[in-house]
Each structure stands twice: as structure tokens, then as C-alpha cells.
Amino acid sequence: MNVFARHRPQKLRMSSSGFTLIELMVTIAVLAIIVSIAAPNISNQLANQRVKSTAATLANALSEAKAESVIRRQKITLTYANTSTPKVITITAPGSTIIASYSYNSRSVIKPDTATPTIFEPSKQVATALTYTVCDNYSGATSRQIEVDKIANITTKLGGTCS
């Protein structure tokens, strides 16, 4: 006990220790307000991170497929499965030989602009230029696009529609 507390009356010394119930309730109410403001932002950030991760996985798979087509001197096909569990991106050689497979988040969705699979030629080109849009089940997420042009350049950018 400090020096000043000894000079107070006994009744005042006993009642001045701890927090009152009202002080604790006000503190909890303030914390609840802060959490309710922060919760939607956290959900949005998690959804954006899932989209970013899936887009990076798809871009890496496309790059590997491009490199494998040059190394093997064969046409290499990249396919994905939005309906399987787990969701998988597969790189295959002729004869359905699986070279590699990548799983991606079950809440992410990959949408191509055309229904044709991506086929990389040994001449460092693709059969058809494609744009993939990566979306999330959470509606507040920002989608990303991965573009593969005719000469197999792979670029990632924000945007696209997820409807």
C-alpha cells in the first residue's frame, strides 16, 4: 500500500479497489462495436486472399505447362475441375499422362472465357488465346484475370466479372 492510501479513511480505501460493473459493461460494449465494424473487412480480406492464391496457382500451372511443352517438344494441355473435391488444376501430356496437378481453394471458382482447354504448343504458342477469371463464393471479393495470349505470354491483373 502506498503512503497516500494510508491517510484515507478506512471506508474510502475499501471501495476504491477494482472496476465497477458499469465500467466493465461500457468497455465490453465499445469492444463489441469495434469488432462489428472490423468483421466485414476481415471476411473481405480473406476472400481476396483466396482469389489471389488461386490466381497465383493458376498462373504457376500455366507457366509450368508452357515450359513442359518446350522441354518435352509435345503439346501440353492444362485443365481444371471446379466441380471435384478437392478442386484441381491438371497438366497432361499426350496419352493422358499427368505431369503435375495443383489443388486450389474449394471456395474459389475458375471461369474461362471459352470452353476450350489451354493447349501449349512446343513452338511457345497456344492453340487459342484465353482469359481466365478467378472468383470467390464470397460476393465482396475482388476477382482477378489471368490472360494467355497467342504467343503464350501469361499476365495477371485485377478485374473480371463473377456472375
Rank of each mutant, 00 (worst) to 15 (best):
S53E: 15
T131M: 07
Y104I: 02
V134E: 04
T54G: 11
I71P: 00
Q125L: 12
T133N: 08
T114M: 10
I99Q: 07
V88M: 11
S123Y: 13
A127F: 10
T116W: 07
T79G: 06
E68P: 00
K124M: 15
I98R: 10
T54A: 15
A61N: 07
I119K: 05
P122G: 01
I98E: 15
A65I: 01
A81Q: 12
E68S: 08
T85N: 14
E121V: 02
T128F: 13
R72G: 10
P94F: 11
A59H: 06
V126K: 03
S53R: 05
T131Q: 13
E121P: 02
V134D: 04
N48L: 08
N105I: 02
A100R: 12
S84D: 15
A67T: 06
K75P: 03
L58P: 07
P86I: 04
V88Q: 12
A115N: 14
A127S: 13
A59G: 13
T77R: 10
I76H: 02
V126G: 03
R50H: 13
A100C: 08
A127I: 08
S69I: 00
S69K: 01
T83L: 14
L62Y: 05
I71H: 08
Q49W: 06
I89T: 01
A67H: 09
T128V: 13
T97C: 02
